[in-house]
C-alpha cells in the first residue's frame, strides 16, 4: 500500500481566469508558475493580459443592472450563502493560505476564520447601509426629500499583494455588498486563495459576471483598469505606493473614483468600518410633492 501511494504522480494544476461566470484561459495564452513561501512549485496560474481586462469589464458591466437592481435583502442572502461555502472549504483555504503566505497551519486557520467572518460582516450591511447613509432631508417647501445610496457601477480592484485571502475578502466584499460588480486582479505571487474563491463564487448564487478574477500583475493590468472608460471606481490597494499616483492620474481622464488607501498594507485583522462601502455608493436625492 505504502509503495503504491509513493508511486502516485500528483496532478499538477494549471488554473484559469474567472470571467463572466466562466473559467477561460488568458487571451494571451500566458501562464506563470506559482511557488509557496519557500520557493517550491505549487501550481501554474493564468497570466492575464489587457484584453482579459477588457473582457472582464464587459462581463462586469453586463452583470451590473441585475446585481444593483436586486433587493438589498436578496444580495445579503446571496453573500451569506458564499460565506457558508467558504466555511465548507476551510481546510483547502487554510492549506493554500499557509503555503502562500508561509505561516503555520493554526495561524492560517485563524486567518480563514477571520475572512469568513469578514464576509458575513459585509453581508450583514447590505440591507442596513441605506438606513445609515440615506436620509429624509428637511426642506423648506411642501416636498418630501429623500437621499438613497446607489451603487456606482463597475469597480476595478487591485487586491493586496501580501494578504492573499483576508485582504482579498476585505477589499472585494464591500464592493459586492454595496451592489457594484468587480474586476479583481489577485495577488501576483499568492493567487491560489483568489482562484479557490472564484471556484466558490462560481458554484454559489452570485450571478455570472458580478465578480471577475484575473490572476496576473497589478502593475501591468492596473493602468488599463484605471484608464478604462467603462470602469467607475478603482481600488489601488495592490499597486505600489508610486504606481498609485500614476493610476490616479490615468483614472482622472474618465473622472473615476479612486480609493484613498494607506501607503503600506494595513493590518487586515483589524475591525473594519463602512468607509469602503461608502466609497462605492453614490447618493441619489428624490424630491416628491406633499399632498394637500
Amino acid at each position: 500500500m505504502a509503495e503504491q501511494r509513493r508511486a502516485r504522480v500528483p496532478v499538477a494544476k494549471t488554473y484559469k481566469l474567472y470571467v463572466g461566470g466562466q473559467f477561460p484561459r488568458s487571451e494571451s495564452g500566458r501562464s506563470y508558475p506559482v511557488s509557496d513561501a519557500k520557493g517550491r512549485f505549487l501550481a501554474n496560474a493564468a497570466h492575464a493580459s489587457r484584453k482579459d481586462v477588457r473582457d472582464a469589464v464587459v462581463a462586469a458591466r453586463k452583470a451590473f443592472p441585475g446585481w444593483a437592481g436586486a433587493t438589498a435583502y436578496n444580495r445579503g442572502q446571496v453573500l451569506y450563502r458564499v460565506a457558508e461555502m467558504l466555511e465548507g472549504r476551510r481546510e483547502q483555504f487554510a492549506a493554500e493560505v499557509a503555503a502562500s503566505e508561509g505561516i503555520s497551519g493554526g495561524k492560517a486557520q485563524s486567518v480563514v476564520d477571520t475572512a469568513v467572518d469578514r464576509w458575513v460582516w459585509y453581508a450583514g450591511w447590505t440591507d442596513k447601509i441605506a438606513t445609515v447613509l440615506g436620509a429624509a432631508n428637511p426642506v423648506a417647501g411642501p416636498y418630501f426629500s429623500f437621499t438613497v445610496p446607489e451603487p456606482t457601477g463597475v469597480v476595478g480592484v487591485l487586491a493586496p499583494q501580501r494578504s492573499s485571502l483576508l485582504g482579498l475578502v476585505s477589499v472585494l466584499a464591500p464592493a459586492l455588498a454595496s451592489g457594484c460588480t468587480a474586476v479583481v486582479v489577485s495577488s501576483a505571487q499568492r493567487p491560489l486563495p483568489a482562484i479557490t474563491l472564484s471556484e466558490v463564487l462560481a458554484t454559489s448564487d452570485v450571478p455570472a459576471g458580478v465578480v471577475n478574477v484575473l490572476t496576473g500583475r497589478a502593475d501591468e493590468l492596473g493602468p488599463w483598469l484605471a484608464s478604462h472608460g467603462d470602469v467607475d471606481a478603482l481600488d489601488p490597494t495592490g499597486a505600489g505606493a508610486e504606481a498609485r499616483t500614476e493610476l490616479a492620474r490615468e483614472a482622472a481622464g474618465t473622472v473615476k473614483r479612486v480609493l484613498t488607501v494607506p501607503a503600506g498594507e494595513p493590518d487586515w485583522t483589524e475591525r473594519p468600518d463602512i468607509a469602503r462601502l461608502r466609497r462605492y455608493l453614490e447618493p441619489k436625492t428624490v424630491w416628491h410633492p406633499m399632498g394637500g
Binding site: R61, H228, G229, D230, G253
Partner: peptide
C-alpha cells in the same frame, strides 16, 4: 476610440 485614445472605452460613450 480605443485605437485612437489608447485606452478602452465603454457603452456610455
Amino acid at each position: 476610440r480605443t485605437q485612437l485614445d489608447g485606452h478602452y472605452s465603454g457603452p456610455d460613450y
